[in-house]
Amino acid sequence: MHPILKLVAERLALGVLLLFAASALIFGLTEILPGDAAQAILGQSATPESLANLREEMGLNRPAVTRYVEWLGGIVTGDMGVALTNKLPIGEQIARRMSSTLFLAFWAAIISVPLAILLGLIAVRFQNRWPDKLISGITLASISLPEFMIAYILVFFFAVKLFWAPSFASVSPGMPLLDQLHAISLPVAVLTMVVLAHMMRMTRAAILNVMQSAYIETAELKGLTTFKVIYRHAFPNAIAPIVNVVMINLAYLVVGVVVVEVVFAYPGMGQYLVDAVVKRDVPVVLACGVIFAAVYIILNIVADVVSILANPRLRHPK
């Protein structure tokens, strides 16, 4: 078998294993929390008898391992259970929420990833000169401010003062794409600013590291322009670390958008999770937790695989 296939298969198997471990961890943690679903449904005024009855009815008295296996079996077959609060199937809810979140994350990624890499390349080209310092300054400032702060500043200027964009990102299914994009323009801008610095600085550092190599000197002595040297000779050798950071940030765009979704009242996964936590809707929390874990693991596997593919020694063995 080609060594690459073997490595990729190893990574995938490891990912599946990790996902099981994560699901067990999430389940275990919700078990530790004080109170359970029965308590949450009946509220403070519940009598011990009614609690016991409800627990019996919901099967909460059975051992945790049995319930975990049942729950896991459901998830593997695509059945995530029913929300406690509104009795709706969680799967459908999540499908809708997830598509909203992915829509937002997709546009934030489309803008931020190429922009971060381009800015990183420019920063290398003008290393320690004003464009580099300007790029570093702005991106560092934007990562240093809390997300909600950036969000409110943008809302203040672009929604309240200039009326360029709505302060609430309400998107409905029938809207034309352009209107949808207009609606989410501010949250996308906030997310872009939040993830930009990390990716841009890693691009800069990884390429600068490669720029010390002897083959960069060879390229310069071929009479190539500095920018050609950077993107033809340095960038291909810096892909692996860059991809890793890009993937971590993409995962953040899906998993870490809670604050932004709340600020802009955007109906995504973040909001859904926050609501569920507030209402002690344990099955929903569990489902969201597993999905977030899966997103992280999948994106990291992608990063690993891309790093492997980017290595010519693995791609073309002797």
Binding site: T218, A219, K222, G223, P312
Partner: peptide
């Protein structure tokens, strides 16, 4: 730049380090 790689070229001590491993 027009001179480098056209009129004057360079052979380094370590070809192993002077070739780009990715190409």
């Amino acid at each position: 730049r027009k001179l480098r790689g056209a009129e004057v070229t360079y052979v380094s001590q370590s070809a192993a380090a002077s070739f780009n491993p990715a190409k």
